[in-house]
Amino acid sequence: MSQKFPEVQGGGSLIIAWQVKEKNVLVVGGGERGIQVAAGRILHALNADARVTVVCPSSGLNDEVAFRIAEKQVSHIDRNFEPQDLDAADMVLCAVDDPEASTRVWKLCKERRIPANIADVPSECDFYFGSVHRDGPLQVMVSTNGNGPKMASIIRKKIAGTLPDNTGAAIENVGLLRKKLREVAPDLKDGAKRMKWMSRVCESWSLEDLVEMNEADMSQLLDYYKSGEVPSLKAIRDTQ
């Protein structure tokens, strides 16, 4: 009986896409190495549409973080971290060169139940940053659970190298088609049929076809939803 089910492999992380849009992310930076790491953390948070506040003395900023502050992409508190900085934080990303200061931030976050990542200290992290490949809506993350960040980067590059060009554009078109399909068949009872039909589209059309598909093609394709058919892109255009 047990052979019918996947084997449990402990020691992993729960890999999820954490929605932080419009959430308050506090970045605590400091030190030459720390502010470099903080710059990467800031970009990750901004890419996820978070509201970012950076706590770091101006003297400790690097060019990238100073640029984002000057462009008002992030808010800046020009001093070292203080406990009251956590009052409005939904998430904390700490990257400072002082281990004692890092642990202080971690303990305060635990007291307030604020999820935190303390750079380079896996034992003081509620979550890890992986190595991410980004192509429009496509995000592929490789995590080594804090064991080898450089290995994560190497593996991520190998995976990215196998992906066809324009994968992101194809995904954007599939997303638009799904949105239009929900307008055509909005009832909850149609959920299983919608999923099955969209799966057939993704499996039967080539990546190139999905990239090339325009809104006129989508309208034509949606006419076949009720019957469950999935004609080719060529067949659709031959009827236009």
Rank of each mutant, 00 (worst) to 15 (best):
Q220N: 13
G148M: 09
P231W: 04
S227C: 09
N145Q: 08
L207H: 06
P99Q: 12
E82R: 14
K179I: 03
N173I: 00
R113P: 10
V105K: 01
L210D: 01
G161F: 04
V20C: 11
A152Y: 05
R178S: 11
M198Y: 00
D238P: 00
E64L: 07
G168S: 02
E229Q: 14
N145C: 04
E82F: 05
A70G: 04
A95E: 04
L43M: 10
G191E: 13
D165K: 15
M195F: 12
L46K: 08
V74C: 13
A17R: 15
N117P: 13
Y225I: 02
S59G: 11
K110R: 15
E229K: 14
L222H: 05
P164H: 11
T144Q: 04
N80Y: 14
A192C: 05
W205Y: 03
S2W: 08
V140L: 10
D126L: 06
L176R: 12
A185R: 08
A95H: 05
F5D: 13
S227P: 06
K157C: 09
P122C: 12
P186V: 14
Q3F: 09
V28Q: 07
V27G: 02
M213V: 09
A170G: 06
R41F: 08
T103E: 12
G175I: 12
Q19P: 09
L177W: 03
I171A: 08
R178Q: 14
A169V: 06
Q9T: 04
A116M: 12
D78G: 07
K189G: 08
K234G: 05
Q9D: 01
R113F: 15
L14R: 09
E183P: 05
Q84K: 09
V201P: 00
L108H: 05
V142S: 00
A50L: 08
V37K: 08
S2P: 10
S75K: 13
A95Y: 02
E7W: 09
S206V: 00
K107C: 13
K179W: 11
L61S: 01
G60N: 14
L188R: 10
E7H: 05
L177N: 00
G146D: 01
C94N: 06
A95I: 04
K189I: 12
P231Q: 04
T167E: 12
L61E: 02
I114L: 10
V211P: 02
V65E: 01
K110T: 14
K226M: 09
A192D: 11
